[in-house]
Design a protein around this nucleic acid. Structure first.
Lengths: 334, 334
DNA sequence: TTGTATGCGTTATCAC
DNA sequence: GTGATAACGCATACAA
C-alpha cells in the first residue's frame, strides 16, 4: 500500500510537504503543490485513516450500537442517522447487540479509538447498567433507551403519550373490550406502550378481563398469530391496539382471513406510521412518529458533544407521537 | 483517555507486559497477569483501535458502500451483512453514496486504513467506472452492481430470470395487456427487470401499445401514483408487474381506491418478497429473493479475500429469484 | 517555502 | 518472564 513516504520520495520532496498539500495546511508553492498532487494521483495515494486519527485524535466517525431488531422502523431510524452523519462529514461504525451487558461492554471496547462518539440504541431494559458504565469514556447519546431523567443525554419517543392518544381514541368511540398486541416484554418502548394501554383502559372503567393482552415480538408473523388468537376469544374484542405497525398489519391479515371486517367488526390501531401504513387495506390508523427525525436529532446532539459546542447538560428530549386516524378504526357495530 | 502507558506505570511493569496480557501473547507469570488485569479494569483501560491497527495492519472492519435507497429490501440486505460480519468478529463501517463517481471515490479514500475490505452496493449504472478504479487497492466485492462478468467478484440477484418468471405467469394466464411499473431508470435491477418485461411481452406477441411502461422510483408513493395512472388508461391493463414490492403495494392501494378489484379486474405482481408481502390484502404474488442471504454471501466472499483463503478468481455469483404465486394474480375476467 | 524531528498508542523484536 | 526500543503512517512545531 502506497504511503506518504512513497509520494514524498517519488515527488522529490519531504513527507511534511506532501502532508501540507493533502491537508491544505501551511504554505506550499503552487508548482510543488501541483507536482505533489500529480504524483499522488499517479500512485493512487490516499492517507491512512488509522494513522491520521492517531495523531489528530479525531476519527470523523461516530459509532452506533443497534439492537437486534428489524423492520421498517429501524431502517428508517438508521436512514436518519446516516443522513445526518453524512452531511456532517462523518462516517458510521455500526455494531449490533442483543442487549446483554457483556455484549455492550465488548462493543464499547471495540469502538475505543475508532469513533469520536457513540449513539446507543438499546431498548432492552437490561442494558441500563452497561450504558451507565461507559458513559464517562466518551460522548454518548441514548436513542430510545430506558434511562433515568438527567442521567444521560437521550432522545426518546413519547411512547406513553402516543399510546394514550390511540387508546383514548378507541375508548371514546365506545370500545369496551379492547386487546393489545404487546411487543417484547423486556423492551422499553413495549413496556411504555403497554403501560398506557393499562392506564387508559382502567380509567375508562374497562374490567381487567376486557383488557386483553396478547404477546408479540414486533414482527408481522407475531401480529398474525395474535390476530388468530383474538378471533378465537369469546366474546371477541371490538378493537385491537398493536405495539407497532408490523404487528398491526399481521393482525389485519389474520382478522381478514378469519372473516372479520375491519373496522366494522374490529378496529385496529398501530404504532410508528411506517411508510406502508397508509397503503394498507384498509389504511391503518396509527400513532405517527417522525422516525428519521429521531435519528437526525440524536446525531445533532452527539456531534454537539463531540465538537465541544455543547454545554454538557444531560437532557432528555421527547420526540412527539400523535395518532393519525385512517380507516382501520371506528365505532364498534351496535 | 487512559493508555497502555498509564496501565504500565500504575502496575509497575513495562508496556510490553501490559500488551502481552491484553493479547494473551507471549508468556507472563500468573501473578503479574492478574495484577495487570486488575489495574486495567480499575483504570477502565481499553486499547486504542486506530493505534493497534496501525501496527497490525488489520482493522477487523469491513466497509460497505450503500446506495441512497430505502425500504425493506435494503434493510434486509444490511441485516444479512451485519449478521455475517458480526459472527466473523468484524465491524461494519458504512458510507452512503448517490452513485456519483466523485462520491464513490471520496468514500473509498475515507475508508483507506479503516477497513480490511469493501462491499460495494451501488446499483447505479454510472458507478461502474469508479468501481473499476478502486478495485486494485483492496479486496472488493460487488453486491448487485452492474459489472461485466469476470471483471469483479460479485453477487447479483437473478433479476432477469425472476422477472421473466413473473411475466410468463401473467402471459400464461392469458393477459395480453400488461403494465410494468419500472424502478429508477439508471438502476441496474430496474433495467434488468424491465428487459425481461419487454422480452416476454414481445415473445408473447403483445403489441408495444399493450405493453405499458409507467415510471416509478421504488417507493410506495410512486407505486400509488402509477396505479392511479393505470386506472385512467383505456383500455385498462389486466395485469401490472411492479419492479419491487413497495411499488406493488402502493399500486394495490391505488387500484382499490379506484374501485378496481384485484385480481379479478387487475392482477398485480411484485418483486423481492419483503416480509410484509404475504400479509397484504390480497396477499401479494411476487418474485421471492432470499434477501439476507445476498448480504451473507457477499460477506463470506469478501472475508475470503481479506483472510487470503480465497484464490483470487473473479467470480460472479447469482442469487436465485423465483415467483411465488399468492392471491393478487390470476386469469383476467372474461 | 521547505525539511527535520518528535510523538500519537500499540505490537513485535530483541535483548536480558 | 520481563523490559527496552523500533516501527506503523501521519501531522506538526520548529529550524532553516
Amino acid at each position: 500500500m502506497v504511503s506518504i513516504k512513497d509520494v514524498a520520495r517519488e515527488a522529490g520532496v519531504s513527507v511534511a510537504t506532501v502532508s501540507r498539500v493533502c491537508n491544505d495546511s501551511g504554505v506550499v508553492s503552487d508548482s510543488t503543490r501541483q507536482h505533489v498532487l500529480d504524483i499522488a494521483a499517479k500512485l493512487g495515494y490516499s492517507p491512512h485513516g488509522a494513522a491520521r486519527s492517531l495523531i489528530t485524535s479525531r476519527t470523523s466517525t461516530i459509532g452506533v450500537l443497534l439492537p437486534d431488531l428489524y423492520g421498517e422502523f429501524f431502517s428508517e431510524v438508521i436512514r436518519g442517522i446516516d443522513r445526518a452523519v453524512g452531511e456532517a462529514g462523518y462516517h458510521l461504525l455500526v455494531s449490533r447487540s442483543h442487549g446483554e451487558e457483556r455484549e455492550i461492554v465488548a462493543a464499547f471496547r471495540a469502538m475505543r479509538g475508532r469513533v469520536d462518539g457513540l449513539l446507543v440504541m438499546s431498548p432492552d431494559l437490561d442494558a441500563r447498567n452497561a450504558v451507565n458504565a461507559l458513559r464517562d469514556h466518551f460522548p454518548v447519546v441514548l436513542l430510545n433507551c430506558p434511562s433515568e431523567r438527567d442521567q444521560h443525554d437521550s432522545i426518546v419517543i413519547a411512547n406513553y403519550d402516543g399510546a394514550s392518544e390511540a387508546m383514548r381514541h378507541l375508548v371514546e368511540h365506545g370500545h369496551r373490550r379492547i386487546a393489545m398486541i404487546t411487543g417484547l416484554p423486556r423492551n422499553y418502548d413495549s413496556v411504555e406502550r403497554l403501560r398506557a394501554f393499562r392506564d387508559i383502559t382502567r380509567e375508562a372503567g374497562v374490567s381487567r378481563e376486557n383488557a386483553i393482552e396478547v404477546g408479540g415480538d414486533f414482527t408481522e408473523a407475531s401480529g398474525f398469530r395474535a390476530g388468530q388468537m383474538l378471533l378465537e376469544a369469546s366474546p371477541r374484542p371490538t378493537a385491537v391496539f398493536a405495539a407497532n405497525d408490523s404487528m398491526a398489519i399481521g393482525a389485519l391479515s389474520a382478522l381478514r382471513s378469519g372473516g372479520a371486517r375491519v373496522p366494522e367488526d374490529i378496529s385496529v390501531v398501530g404504532f410508528d406510521d411506517i411508510p406502508m401504513a397508509r397503503y394498507m387495506n384498509p389504511p391503518l390508523s396509527t400513532v405517527q412518529v417522525d422516525i428519521s427525525a429521531l435519528g437526525v436529532r440524536a446525531v445533532e446532539r452527539l456531534l454537539g458533544h463531540v465538537r465541544g459546542s455543547h454545554d454538557g447538560a444531560r437532557q432528555r428530549e421527547l420526540v412527539p407521537a400523535h395518532l393519525v386516524v385512517r380507516s382501520s378504526s371506528g365505532s364498534p357495530a351496535a
